[in-house]
Amino acid sequence: MNWTAIWVTFKLASLTAVALLVIGLPIAYWLTYSRWRWKFLVESVVALPLVLPPTVLGFYILVAIGPHSPIGRFYTDVVGQPLPFSFQGLLLASILYSLPFAVQPFASAFDQVDRKLIEASWTLGLSKLKTFFKLIVPLSTAGLITGAVLSFAHTLGEFGVVLMVGGNIEGVTRTVSIDIYDEVQALNYTGAAKTAAFLLVVSYLVLLLVYAINRNMWIAWPRK
């Protein structure tokens, strides 16, 4: 088994999950509580990675961070190296690719917090930010864990985006799914089978965790 690829994959998935916890919370909060009439435009953008072929998403990200785009040039000027085919570029792509897997569970968890509880918190003098951390987050733990774990699992299995944005650099951007593809191309079915089985088991365990957590949480805090 290619342990380097496994290490890269886990590093990528963990960082993506953490980043999405930070970025996804404000987005989900806004999507849940905003009364802006054009909100659905943003909702659709967030959900796009669910339906878009990874190659299409990867292609646009590649163009957006490439040397001909302002973002790409700015990054190269500041950091000194280009984003495409680097781990950082891959991380950015993964975050965008897994965005709905984090934001949607977050938003649906926030949505289930009774509006009356939030109002009660406001009348007790707590600002919207304090109410968020003291009330909404504790009541949404199941959804937050689900979102983080799902984005982790989703990143574990990503292929098309990695291939487009990350390339296939050993120790930098070669993830497990790419490694399996390489093994099959090289007709090394035994190696591919081992790695595939490993990914299958890990993914299954991760999903077990999600479902177990959700079940327990609902028993702990029945809704109505």
């Binding site: 509880l117 109002e119 009660a120 009348t123 003098g125 707590l126």
Partner: peptide
């Protein structure tokens, strides 16, 4: 003036106690 700054005590129907 926001509800936070009104210094009121508010008890909604069904009480809305914090389950957590």
């Amino acid at each position: 003036v926001s509800p936070q700054d009104r210094q009121i005590g508010y008890m909604p129907q069904e009480y809305a106690l914090f389950p957590s």
